[in-house]
Design a protein around this nucleic acid. Structure first.
Lengths: 302, 302
DNA sequence: GGGCTCCATCGGGGATCGCGATAGCGTGGG
DNA sequence: CCCACGCTATCGCGATCCCCGATGGAGCCC
């Protein structure tokens, strides 16, 4: 079924004559004649009575006219959705859905302002944000559930994924303000006598910290691992111990006096990698998100 | 927009590979490839990611898939309506709408059983019945508001209409059972002294009766004309006078003793003409109605 | 690395599309 | 009465499109 035929159908019904319909459609009259006959043959019923006084729909044509318009409406919706997804070049905005995954700590700190900026720039864009660990991010990108992922890893060595380092976040040791080490400088031996509240295994800088602490001879550091950054931060704020986090995730608490810096041994900054699937199509929406993320991270922290 | 492309689209989304979709569609694999690329070009956005592990829809493809299915649904409805209108050759039934006009007197007497028979034979057929005089019937057929009309006229001399005489209805003079002439034989002179309740001008047999009564010298018959046959019949039943009607329209009242026959001068039977437009398409539904009407009138009254 | 599966591309034969020209038909004016 | 006009149907033609089979390249498994 060729929707062109349906457009000629409704045009003819509206115009009342083949000649007028052809003019409206910018076609030759003979073309409209053939199109309507084709449609009548395809549907198996005459659609118009060709009377000397004009061309009027038959009873069947009148009924089918509504259904033909419904088809054309559905096609118009399809086209509209497609073109909105593709982007409106006039306004420079894009629409559609983009699903991104990000490390828990970024979701709560840096991403809200990025998403707000995206909403302003692209009102039609629907951004879905999931808090995911590195493993879940890789899975989601592989399975198509994620368009983009932000992971805090030095390397992503998946051949079907493409990682781009967009920032490096400085890490900070933090403790409650009334903690004995708060505001002080501590070496590995001092730290190894404290309790630490860190991420689950798989978090690169937490793992490296745990390895370093356990490598200090003659000590048994207390290690508690949390899936949620919030829970760990709460324990630290309650004075139960220390943690090591990207500085941006605790800037609010540091400024508010609810946490304090501990100047520990040098910790290499953690790279922020923006990862996508190597072979999947990058929608204009995903491209817009990529640009916004790159800009947001670049201007403060590389 | 060619809906074939949309069918390949959903088939590919379902099948998960070009090869499998081509098998399901009974097409060559290269054809599906070209069709999908054509659709992607037409919509301006990639619909599938061709991954080594299979062909999966992009985010845009997933969203557009629903809309494509909506289009195909609308097309299926269009086709279903068209074919139901055309008729189901397996069951021999037809569907659709047929609008017929008929003289008031027939609507109340003969047509209900015909319509009931049509409903039994063609459950999908929607019959609209309008009570119309001859002038309105001609107008309605001309304007396309009526598919068929039953008129009680000896001749229909409209070049663009086609009339077919399907019956001749005997006429009967009737009066109230307690009327002096009830059951008796009366000649023109006796009748011309009575009051008559007949149809509006334009009803052939009423007009002829009025002319005959007025032609009787030395009398002034009382003539009252009604648009509605019911009103006239009520007046007669109340004993106010006589009327002349097709016998079938008063058979119930005659059998119930509410009206009585008066044996008046011979009145030529009134022809029932089934009229349609000469050049308009006769739908299968209208053809079924024509056959039913012809049969119903033929077996009792010609 | 060889075989296998899958998708993209290419060339060709056939069908289709849209066009202009023309014929048939009905109408209205001179 | 005849002719001119407007409308639709038909025809022939050039261009395009469609679908096919064959072929090539890429990735995967053994």
């Amino acid at each position: 079924m060729e929707t062109r035929l349906l457009e000629s159908f409704v045009a003819l019904a509206r115009a009342g004559s083949f000649t007028a319909a052809a003019r409206a459609l910018h076609l030759a009259q003979s073309t409209v004649t053939v199109q309507i006959r084709t449609l009548e043959k395809e549907l198996g019923t005459p659609l118009f009575d060709r009377l000397p006084s004009g061309t009027v729909p038959t009873a069947a044509g009148l009924r089918l006219l509504e259904e033909a318009e419904a088809v054309l409406d559905a096609v118009a919706r399809l086209r509209a959705t497609a073109s909105s997804w593709h982007g409106d070049t006039a306004s420079g905005t894009v629409a559609g859905q983009v699903t991104i995954g990000a490390a828990d700590s970024l979701c709560a700190s840096r991403l809200p302002s990025v998403i707000a900026a995206l909403r302003r720039a692209h009102p039609g864009l629907e951004v879905h944000l999931n808090a995911v660990g590195t493993a879940a991010a890789v899975d989601g990108l592989r399975g198509g559930r994620l368009d983009l992922a932000l992971v805090l890893e030095p390397e992503v060595v998946e051949s079907d994924l493409l990682a781009h380092r967009i920032a490096e976040l400085p890490l900070t040791y933090v403790a409650a303000p009334d903690h004995p080490l708060a505001g002080r400088t501590a070496d590995w031996e001092e730290l190894a006598r404290e309790s630490f509240f860190v991420h689950e295994e798989g978090c690169s800088y937490s793992d490296r910290l745990v390895r370093a602490l356990r490598g200090v001879p003659g000590t048994r550091p207390g290690i508690t691992r949390f899936g949620s950054i919030d829970a760990a931060r709460s324990c630290v704020a309650a004075g139960l111990g220390l943690t090591l986090l990207p500085q941006v995730t605790v800037e609010g608490q540091l400024a508010g006096g609810r946490l304090a810096v501990v100047h520990g041994p040098e910790a290499p900054p953690v790279p922020v990698q923006l990862v996508r699937h190597r072979r999947r199509w990058v929608s204009p929406g995903a491209r817009a998100v990529t640009e916004e993320l790159t800009a947001a991270f670049a201007d403060t922290s590389l």
